[in-house]
Design a protein around this nucleic acid. Structure first.
Length: 300
DNA sequence: AACCAGGAGGAAT
DNA sequence: ATTCCTCATGGT
């Protein structure tokens, strides 16, 4: 079997990352097992199934199908798990906040799990607008199982997210039948067109400052401030992004910092000033704090 | 049975 | 420049 070994940085916990990937939801784009995660990648346009496990100071990546393109696979995993980040400065900021300091130990080694593909990140954030996450994951699964690429391995199905060229050619009715709202169907198809026609690409945004990138994204119908920040945080790893308008974020800040359910913009900005250049990580850890609560409630 | 979900756009103020 | 309304539907 083809194996790749990838060294991991300090302040890295594979189990914490796995825990977040699993949470309580049914994600169709990876499968979490006891001590590993499986995911189908597109490497050189070829589907490649990998399984990642943790050793002492390395990740072991088993290439189950497809070619063993070491550099590309390592590049993907590094982006996915944000392996090149030094978390010490973030933990120093957290430690200074009495209400959040517990996160340094409780979530130690948790990395901002990315969505390296920008098109996928944008579609996912549009799907997730305003609806509960269980339903959002259901919609993503329907879309992916119908229009994505499927590979079966040892009796289980693994998927690639649908390509923009496919989504661009759909009709509103086809998506409505999958219980997308008319609006979301239009948004997804229009964004698919901007990608398939090369009007927008991740490479393009990488050349932009974060403010410029947000401006460019918000100009597209269906992408508001929340979606732009979410996509830039998850796909381009712009750490200064804050998902303003995010109900989950507000709930976490309400529980941990006593902010109102609908906090003022100015109060949010004041809070995030304490986490400059690590805003996205702060948001991500606040989301993590919500997941803990869900789990506790469910186990009762 | 209301009311809320990891919002956004467009109309009405 | 704000506030209000609608969208679709599952979960609680």
């Amino acid at each position: 079997m083809n194996q790749i070994f990838l060294p991991v940085p300090p302040q890295f916990s594979f189990q914490e990352c796995l825990w977040f990937l699993d949470r309580n939801y049914d994600d169709c784009l990876h499968e979490v097992r006891e001590n590993s995660v499986l995911k189908l990648l597109s490497i050189h346009e070829k589907p490649t199934l990998i399984e990642i496990k943790a050793l002492d100071n390395h990740l072991q990546i088993d290439v189950l199908t497809g070619e063993c393109a070491k550099d590309e696979i390592c590049h993907f995993v590094t982006e996915w798990f944000d392996l090149e980040r030094d978390l010490m400065p973030f933990y120093q900021l957290l430690a200074k906040d009495d209400d959040l300091a517990y996160m340094v130990t409780d979530y130690h080694g948790l990395r901002l799990l990315g969505i390296p593909d920008l098109f996928e990140a944008l579609c996912w954030s549009i799907i997730g607008q305003q609806i509960n996450l269980s339903f959002a994951y259901k919609l993503k699964r329907r879309l992916t199982e119908t229009y994505g690429y499927k590979q079966t391995y040892e009796g289980k199905d693994f998927y690639l997210f649908p390509k923009p060229e496919i989504i661009a050619k759909l009709t509103v009715e086809e998506l409505r039948n999958m219980q997308f709202s008319t609006r979301k169907a239009e948004y997804l198809m229009e964004i698919a067109r901007t990608f398939s026609e090369k009007i927008l690409s991740k490479t393009m945004l990488e050349g932009f400052s974060t403010a410029e990138a947000i401006k460019a994204l918000v100009a597209i119908r269906g992408i508001g401030e929340w979606t732009a920040n979410y996509a830039l945080m998850k796909s381009l790893k712009r750490l200064e992004c804050v998902t303003y308008g995010d109900v989950g974020l507000y709930n976490a800040l309400n529980a941990l910092k006593g902010l109102p359910k609908k906090p003022l913009r100015a109060d949010l900005e004041t809070f995030f000033k304490g986490f400059e250049r690590w805003e996205a990580y702060t948001v991500f850890y606040l989301w993590r704090s919500l997941a803990v609560k869900n789990k506790a409630i469910q186990s009762i």
